[in-house]
Design a binder for these strands. Structure first.
Lengths: 254, 254
DNA sequence: AATTGACTTTGACGTTACGTAAAGGTGTAT
DNA sequence: ATACACCTTTACGTAACGTCAAAGTCAATT
């Protein structure tokens, strides 16, 4: 497959000017130029452009991108896995912003109070991107738990009391699950405790409880990215672990 | 609460230069300047800055933001609801990109084939942001259904055949559900058809089917933003409608 | 009372990642 | 042969700041 500059631009959704610029700064040279000076791109360039766009999407400067993709030791597969992780982080940030909007709406309606600090939660992503280690783990964890809060609360018209309870439950579940995960045994006491907490957490959202539905949801946690990403955030494999624990808890597996 | 330029910058995670620039272009003037020319910001400015940052996050130019926030008819509450919607759209886009990475990884490992078009799926958001009407509905719908595909396929190691089947089922469900929604009757034939399609769709993901789990999932569709946003995308209220249809279908309600 | 150091001010020029013409050559379909 | 949709380079424009520089302000400490 060979592409002229217009075709490639169309394929990737970017302008021809951008492609010429990328050529100019040496970030993406065409495979060859034909007899009349036209830029011709091949499959290798298509893949490289894709990589470039991933980096660009993640806020990396073209200067840095150049260093990365022209590095002879560049590992495309590894880069893709990093992209994946960064994109998941970005989604967490987005969730935080959405939670912020929700809170702000509730605030304007007088339903809750909101500190000025809270009003800017989720905007500091660049600070986080820039120097992740500066604040490091603590902020990550804080943001993590708050992302959940958002997904949970407000959805149902809970009372403040119910909200506090479910928040506490969530924290407890997170802790217990992390502990249990370390044991590696989904049938163990810790894991079964986590499954029980999960059931209690569920009953805040479901009007009726059934083992089948519980087990089904556990499977969803593994199958659906949106959930899996959340549970696997701290420790990859946690989603599967929770599923197994719940399957055992509900008697669907032993 | 009064803030100097440094304090406000710190609060919002932006530089003092940015705040001076926003003053310069008339987008955010300080509440007052003190006797020695220092900019002093009050609570009103804090809220306005939050709005500005939301718009900025969504890719709106400062020029446009100026028009919006300085408009005497500016409705802050309405703006917040729009922010919310746009942020949800942005998350859909992100999901698409994540699906793209996943696919690309699978592709480099030789597990699936991937067209060049697919390699750039999810990157065209700016085209969408810029001129939404240019391509309008069609692209929206296309991206919408593709967002699902992502959530579904690849997660399980489906064969190409299974993948095609589930894709077809998804489309069928979407159409039938949209038709049914128009009737307004979750007990009607159309709606029950949709519920049945949903069951068949489910069986691709769950090893066992139970009415309880099905009904539970339906409730989740309403309670969890991540799902609700997807079903309500075209027609608000669709998530609730689908839940009701399924509750009737499973005999949990009549 | 003087000094230090962290803050503030207004210029003003620099930067990134392109957009937008301008002036001209190329390819092919009518 | 001419229309039209491509392509080229050159070059200036732009948005949203970053980054000095030179100078005034404020509170605390010597």
């Amino acid at each position: 497959m060979e592409y002229t500059i217009n075709k490639l631009g169309h394929l990737a959704g970017i302008s021809t000017r951008t492609l010429r610029y990328y050529d100019e700064i040496g970030i993406l040279k065409p495979a060859r130029v034909n007899s009349s000076g036209y830029r011709i791109y091949g499959p290798k360039e298509v893949d490289c452009l894709q990589q470039i766009l991933f980096y660009r999407e993640l806020g990396v400067s073209l200067d840095q991108i150049k260093n990365i993709v022209t590095d002879p030791a560049f590992d495309g597969a590894k880069a893709l896995r990093e992209h994946r992780e960064k994109l998941l982080e970005k989604r967490q940030q987005l969730d935080l912003l959405i939670a912020n909007v929700d809170k702000t709406i509730a605030h304007t309606e007088g339903r809750i109070t909101m500190s000025n600090e809270e009003k800017f939660e989720g905007f500091k992503q660049k600070m986080i991107e820039d120097n992740e280690k500066k604040y490091g783990q603590e902020i990550r964890q804080k943001y993590g738990t708050e992302t959940v809060e958002k997904a949970n609360a407000k959805v149902k018209n809970m009372t403040q009391e119910q909200y506090d309870e479910v928040t506490a439950l969530t924290e407890q579940l997170t802790e217990t699950l992390a502990e249990a995960f370390k044991t590696g045994n989904p049938a163990g006491e810790q894991a079964q405790n986590a499954a029980d907490l999960h059931k209690r957490w569920l009953t805040y959202y479901w009007d009726h409880y059934s083992k089948e539905a519980h087990a089904g949801l556990a499977q969803m946690y593994v199958d659906d990215e949106r959930f899996k990403a959340y549970y696997d955030k701290e420790q990859p494999g946690t989603a599967e672990f929770l599923r197994d624990a719940i399957l055992i808890y509900t008697g669907m597996k032993r």
